[in-house]
Design a protein around this nucleic acid. Structure first.
Lengths: 190, 190
DNA sequence: TCATTGACTGAATAAATATTCATTTAAATT
DNA sequence: AATTTAAATGAATATTTATTCAGTCAATGA
């Protein structure tokens, strides 16, 4: 028998991400996805029960990718500020390199495709970041405010800047990255 | 003859915003919009040539609403920090009260509906904010960095925090607002 | 009051899109 | 090499959705 080609799933996923980035969730059809993935429309239905399933599977996949990367190279033993910067850079890098995923995930949050259970994944994902901020407060290095407040400021600045840089197709430079972290740190530090 | 009912346009707009907030751009149909606006499907086509036109008109309307509000109560003669806070509060308040518009506009940026010319509106809209930041730098109060960098950090924190608060349906409190501005100011100030 | 005009309706039609399925193809097993 | 099994195809079908239109209604001006 012929086995399923696991590579096809990657093809389908990246075709979908590309199309959603260009046209949004509102602008994708199964036909176009298949074409972009260089397979027949019917083949999509071998790998996914239907459009809904495909989108939900891709959403879950994106979230997994993201969470795997956040804590890369972070060691509890590092001094707090250094550790924070490692994670902050991971967040930044991931968002720059996988902007398509960010666009897709954002759109999914208001869409008829994603189920409430799938959304739940996102909430679980950010738990470790809460711990990080908690540590910073315990060490007296961060402002003693809502974790959410601190985290959203940390993430919001990154997200917004990358959005603008992508829309105006300007590359982000090394010095800009340093400056961004400075802004972030000045905001959060006690 | 019977005149067009201008109130209907508002009905159509707010029905569309409501539906997009719930189901995203991918989840709206002309039929549902009509139903939510309590009119017949055909009537939509009296006010708008087609779906595309409706969406573009709504987009333009949203942008106008936003820009009208940003500089409310701001006087050049106010000291910089006070003026900044006025505008910052306007941004915040608008985003909280018209979150549906924010979701809609965001989704439109990656959609097959919105034309490049319509998007141009957004770019023009933020020009006055650049001037504001420029003033802060001239007065030596803000960090001497990219305007875009400063602005995106100012806006990004707001947007992200509101997003989280809406998704978890937690009301934003007065003290939180003060704390948010503190974070923002600490980030931007020299 | 009546005639005219254009808004308004919603069922009918057209167009777009998701999904199925008969057939073909390719890998694995005997 | 022959047989089996499931993947792969893409045209056909089903479904959903945008758009039209013939008929009705309501405001206006003569």
């Amino acid at each position: 028998m012929k086995p399923k080609d696991e590579k096809k799933i990657r093809q389908i996923f990246s075709a979908t991400l590309k199309l959603v980035h260009e046209n949004g969730l509102a602008g994708i059809t199964m036909g176009e996805i298949a074409k972009a993935a260089r397979i027949a429309t019917g083949t999509l239905y071998i790998y996914f029960k239907n459009k809904n399933d495909l989108i939900n599977a891709l959403f879950t996949d994106c979230r997994k990718n993201a969470v795997n990367i956040y804590f890369k190279n972070y060691h509890e033993s590092d001094p707090f500020k250094k550790g924070l910067k490692v994670i902050w850079l991971n967040l930044l890098k991931f968002r720059i390199e996988h902007f398509e995923q960010a666009v897709f995930v954002d759109q999914c949050h208001h869409s008829p495709f994603i189920t409430e259970t799938t959304k739940e994944i996102t909430r679980k994902m950010i738990q470790p970041l809460y711990k990080l901020v908690e540590r910073g407060k315990e060490e007296g290095l961060l402002k003693d405010l809502d974790n959410t407040l601190l985290l959203t400021f940390m993430v919001g600045g990154i997200n917004e800047f990358i959005k603008y840089s992508k829309y105006s197709s300007k590359k982000i430079t090394g010095p800009q990255i340093e400056q961004m972290f400075l802004l972030c740190w000045d905001a959060l530090k006690r």
